[in-house]
Computed example of a mutant assay.
Amino acid sequence: MKRIGAIELGGTKAVVGAAVMDGAMRPRPIDTLRIPTTTPAETLARCAEALRGLATRMGGLDAVGVASFGPLQLDPRRPGYGGITRTPKPGWAGAPVRDHLADALGVPVAIDTDVNGAALGEGRWGAAQGLNSHVYVTVGTGIGVGVVVGGRPQHGLVHPEGGHLLVRRDTALDPYGGHCPYHGDCLEGLACGPAIEARVGRPATDLPDDHPVWDLVGDYLGQMVANLLFVLSPQRIVIGGGVGGRPGLLTRVRHHAHRHIGGYIDHPALADGLSGFVVPPGLDTGSGLAGALALGWDAA
């Protein structure tokens, strides 16, 4: 049994928890606390303080896992390992997240992206249990893509940035030029929450289920599913997030993904309109914190 602390560090808030784990059963945090994301120094100090409080109740901590917004430096051979790199979040570029927490808590600290963490959590205890490879996609304020193969989150030159996949836009159907400051009409630039609001003038949460923008979003996410299938060949794709969990959206995504796949790949997993291939999270909104606990378990 190990005593694991976990932090899901988001751009607006951090969720802090801890659990006694055996590595097999889904962990049940003894408590969770929510901390506003302000400056790096204040936010990380409050996260460390919260974990020290939880550790007192558990008799100590063996390790901590962090699933963080990014981009992150995840190559241990490069300067700034475990810190945030180029980010639009004011004041957070260069923040040494891992080092700050390791120094404050005196235990091993493992860190990965928030979406890689969510992918890991869904693989251990959620909608992708028992699979060798899967992808987790979060669609909300931005779009993130986490990839797990053989039970391990994937890194390469950097970590996956599938939210910036280039997709095809029919300018007659969708004249909106895109929200992304780097690429304009990439996937995130067309299908994230702020892009929807900028296109129609209302927050996505205020739109009815039959608003035509949802079919556009379903098409762009369907293109993403087809591209991920063609390039990575995952056994399942899990789609979550505030926009990703919109009722009826996954049905549209499956429809358009099936259309874009075009019958090229013949596999039983793609039968029944992709209902078993494109799925919602099994852990609901708890994927990220579960992934942070999994990272901490591995570090311990």
Rank of each mutant, 00 (worst) to 15 (best):
L157I: 01
I143Q: 06
C186H: 04
E161F: 13
G123Q: 10
P160E: 05
I143N: 04
H179A: 11
H211E: 12
L105P: 03
C192H: 03
A128V: 00
L105Q: 08
H100C: 11
D170C: 05
V109R: 12
H159N: 09
G193C: 10
W125D: 02
D185Q: 11
S133W: 05
Q154H: 10
Y136V: 08
H164V: 01
T113C: 05
I111G: 02
D185K: 03
L101S: 02
L187G: 04
V158A: 15
D99R: 15
R124Y: 15
G151F: 14
A195H: 07
H134V: 01
G126Y: 06
G123R: 10
Q129R: 15
D170S: 11
D206W: 02
D209V: 13
V145L: 15
G184P: 02
L101M: 09
P194F: 09
L207F: 12
A195G: 09
G189A: 12
P153Q: 00
L120E: 08
A102I: 04
D103Q: 15
G106H: 08
G144A: 12
L165N: 04
H183C: 05
R98E: 00
Y136T: 04
P203H: 03
L101F: 13
N116G: 08
T113N: 11
V135H: 03
C180I: 09
A204R: 03
R152S: 14
D170K: 02
I111P: 01
A204Q: 05
V139M: 07
V200H: 05
D210H: 14
N116Q: 10
A119V: 06
D99K: 15
G151Q: 12
P175C: 14
D112P: 10
A110N: 09
E122R: 11
L131C: 03
D114H: 02
A204K: 00
G201H: 08
C192I: 06
L157M: 10
V145T: 10
G150M: 11
A127C: 12
C192L: 06
R169F: 07
L207N: 11
Q129H: 01
D112A: 13
V107Q: 03
G146W: 05
T205S: 15
V135R: 03
H183Y: 00
V145Y: 03
G140Y: 08
G146I: 01
D114Y: 00
T205C: 13
A110H: 06
Y182C: 11
V145Q: 03
P203C: 12
V145N: 02
I196T: 05
V167R: 02
N132I: 00
D185G: 08
H134S: 14
D210S: 13
H155D: 06
V148L: 07
V147A: 01
V200C: 08
A118C: 12
D99T: 14
T141N: 13
H100E: 15
N116V: 01
R152M: 14
L190V: 11
R124T: 04
D99H: 14
H211Y: 14
V137M: 15
D174M: 10
G142M: 08
V147Q: 07
V213R: 06
H179N: 13
C186K: 01
G126L: 07
A102K: 14
V149E: 10
G146E: 04
I196L: 09
V167H: 04
V147H: 10
W125H: 06
D206T: 10
G178N: 10
L120F: 14
G178H: 07
Y182N: 13
G193T: 07
T138M: 06
P194H: 13
S133N: 13
H164C: 01
E197L: 12
L190K: 04
G193I: 01
D112C: 13
